[in-house]
Design a protein around this nucleic acid. Structure first.
Lengths: 194, 194
DNA sequence: GTCTATACAAAGATAGAC
DNA sequence: GTCTATCTTTGTATAGAC
């Protein structure tokens, strides 16, 4: 399977940007990783910023695109929602460990992404969750509900470098550790409801 | 109260580095923020990297210095440990919202910090916690225990920019939201034990 | 100790040949 | 479309006057 030059550049950009973030990434490194001349990068994308926007949009969708279709579906029970979200996220992040850190860090500084979050407002107020919680007699807010799922599921990936370098867990054990948590988190989240 | 030039530079560096991280920070901005000439920065600290090390060490200690004294103290019960950690962290982070993001992001790339984590190994294996869990008949690992406390306490601060720009929560409500969680998290964490 | 001026280096962007 | 060479800008470091 042959990649076009354009695809090779995007591929390389995806890899380096997600590892290092926008500022720490050098276009020269992307060119080298892609095996092309630096000038070509500019020929295809005009600027570092343009290339970056393609990647950050893509990654943003990867990370948050799975939330709303699940949460807003009235056919899915609370339990199933947690279960599905945790499973989907865990599987996704095991293949893309840098994803949450990358997206969350760029949201702080990327004007375009902030605008996009606002416009879509997909994650915005969750009336379905809110009513499902109410029906079950829970007074917990939907925001707390979402926050707890994401905290327990995403944070271990964001703190992995810390815990690996501290020796608390070994690189080889990490996937197994996460897989165990995947089974437990749904119960834990249900227990936060009151 | 008059600050010396050196203190003014550190003060400015602390502010800008923690907001933007190492790569995105320009020494010219630090100089401007400090109200001093760019050359003085180099006079006092020789390089951007040297200045940064001072800040990252300081912030690393701020974020992780409070863990071990609490966890390794056998006189403190599990319940008190969770309670104290959550309270201390919440209070600290309400005053330093960028702290966890800053420290965790630099751990990924900062050779010096990685070495320091290894050497101290303060967060490393927690025999005290391990035995306290065992005594109570819990089979949960100390790593899971620590991970859950930190997830539920730190993640909301790391994801704040996302949720604020999405409109799910307003800037003014955030502190209140966090303060509410502070009361709930200890119970939630106890419920993760089995 | 502090500043001005400037050198030096790195990184992004472009012109022009092929 | 692709490359080489080069320009421009910006960030880092230093020399030397006061």
């Amino acid at each position: 399977m042959e990649l076009t030059t354009e695809e090779k550049i995007i591929e390389a950009a995806r890899k380096i940007f997600t590892q290092k973030g926008f500022s720490a990434t050098r276009t020269r490194d992307i060119a080298e990783e892609a095996g092309i001349n630096l000038a070509l990068l500019n020929y295809y994308f005009r600027s570092k910023q343009n290339l970056f926007q393609i990647i950050i949009e893509e990654k943003f969708d990867e990370l948050f695109g799975i939330i709303n279709p699940i949460l807003s579906n009235r056919e899915i029970s609370l339990e199933e929602k947690i279960e599905t979200l945790v499973t989907n996220y865990t599987n996704l992040l095991l293949e893309n460990e840098d994803l949450p850190f990358f997206v969350l860090s760029e949201i702080k500084s990327n004007e375009f992404i902030i605008k996009r979050v606002k416009q879509n407002a997909e994650i915005l107020s969750q009336p379905v969750i809110e009513s499902q919680l109410k029906e079950r007699g829970f007074t917990t807010s939907s925001f707390n509900f979402i926050m707890n799922i994401m905290s327990l599921t995403l944070f271990p990936f964001m703190s992995k470098p810390l815990f690996v370098s501290s020796g608390l867990i070994k690189e080889e054990e990490f996937a197994r550790f996460i897989t165990e948590r995947k089974k437990d988190i749904p119960t834990w989240v249900m227990n936060t409801l009151k």
